[in-house]
Write a protein that binds this DNA or RNA. Sequence first.
DNA 1: CATAGACTATCACGCGGCGTCAGAGTCAAG
DNA 2: CTTGACTCTGACGCCGCGTGATAGTCTATG
Lengths: 251, 251
Amino acid sequence: MRHTVKQLADLAGVSPRTLHYYDEIGLLKPSSVGENGYRYYGEDTALRLQQILFYRELDVSLSEIRTILDTPRFDAQLALQSHRSALQARVERLNGLIETIDRTIEHMRGEREMSAGEMFVGFDEETQRRYEEEASRLWGEKHVKESRRRWDGYLKEKQGAILAEGGAVYRDLVAHLDDDPASAPVQQAIARWHQNLRYFYEPTPEVLHGLGQAYSQHPQFRATFTRMHPDLPDFLTAAIEHYCRNLASAA
Amino acid sequence: MRHTVKQLADLAGVSPRTLHYYDEIGLLKPSSVGENGYRYYGEDTALRLQQILFYRELDVSLSEIRTILDTPRFDAQLALQSHRSALQARVERLNGLIETIDRTIEHMRGEREMSAGEMFVGFDEETQRRYEEEASRLWGEKHVKESRRRWDGYLKEKQGAILAEGGAVYRDLVAHLDDDPASAPVQQAIARWHQNLRYFYEPTPEVLHGLGQAYSQHPQFRATFTRMHPDLPDFLTAAIEHYCRNLASAA
DNA sequence: CATAGACTATCACGCGGCGTCAGAGTCAAG
DNA sequence: CTTGACTCTGACGCCGCGTGATAGTCTATG
């Protein structure tokens, strides 16, 4: 298997310009370059492009994708499993949007009341929670039902406050990025984070620890936190790791 | 219900800057502007923003969204139905990607062979066909199963040729945009388009006519064809309409 | 009443990820 | 050899905002 630019582009449904660009930024180097200057791609690069397209499908930036794919410990099969669960979460989100549509139509027919907030359910509101559900799914699925049951039990206003508090915790941590992850203000913020999580489900120490690791390793988490600050993912992981050690030694 | 910029932005999960920008480009004007210069949004604008977000979710450009929402015949409820079916098509696409993941994992375990083209199934390859399935769904669902059954029966190489021919038809039509839609070269291209459709299902004259109209009215079709050429959607509709009249008078 | 913090506004630069085009070289078929 | 489709590099520009600056407005508190 050996493809020129157009051949691979046609197969993948991208443009030749895209492949040029990806070469230029070091994201997808061709398998070889002929004496004529032409790029040639083999199965290794086709597989890498597939990974790129999956990450792109999940709205991960190209520089992030490059970082992920270039880590020595990158495991392609594990990444595919991760994509799979992320895509399933996306499917659920879309189904949530479809429900919003149904409710909006009922509203327009005068069959039901609808607040402005309710109109936008499914677009972005529960993104963070959905990511965390997904991470939990990596370690155990019982949390999903529990999480939904708890969430649905809260009043709308309470839900807004919970989400706002979650966001405030991360902003607080960004403000303490120069501190030691083990310092008291940081650990207090992590305790608030822990409490915030408990609105969704009762996290075991294992889940807490796994979440902490996922925040820097899982592509969507990493992308989300990097957008807040480039150093936040690793900082979060270190701080949560310390917090979990404290939980373990206190028990 | 009356919201300031931040209030509506928070509800909708967008940024105030986005709302400023949408005002600036005439996409979403506030319901009113106070003496202090502040923008205020009511339920009318919240509903419009919801529509915008649905179209954005479906990757429609903002200028296209504006065109659609500003047409005098815009029917919000009908549009929501349209979004619904588009989102369901998106769900199916994501499920297709999930299948690709499963097959890729099997390939990596050595359990199955996989071509480079197969790696990219679900990303973009069948976009056109999926749109057309969706349009058919608007007029009758029996075509969906028939379409899938036919498609699955073709060899991979044949599938590639069918899709390429579909693309060639549209490129041919773009080259004849200065011609009369009723002219012989254009009508011949539409006949090829008709034949191409028949690889998927046997379209009734009603479906053909409806597809012709959908090409300029249905947001995703319109966006797709506008990307090929700004005048193509309306040209297609006019050419197909003429072709259908010829079919009817020949019968 | 004064202050502080959170909000509002406009303005403007810049970014990511390409699309598009130009000019020149390469390849394969007739 | 010619032609058309491909290849390359280079470069401008677009879309949809994010970000930051500056200044005005609003609301709660002391």
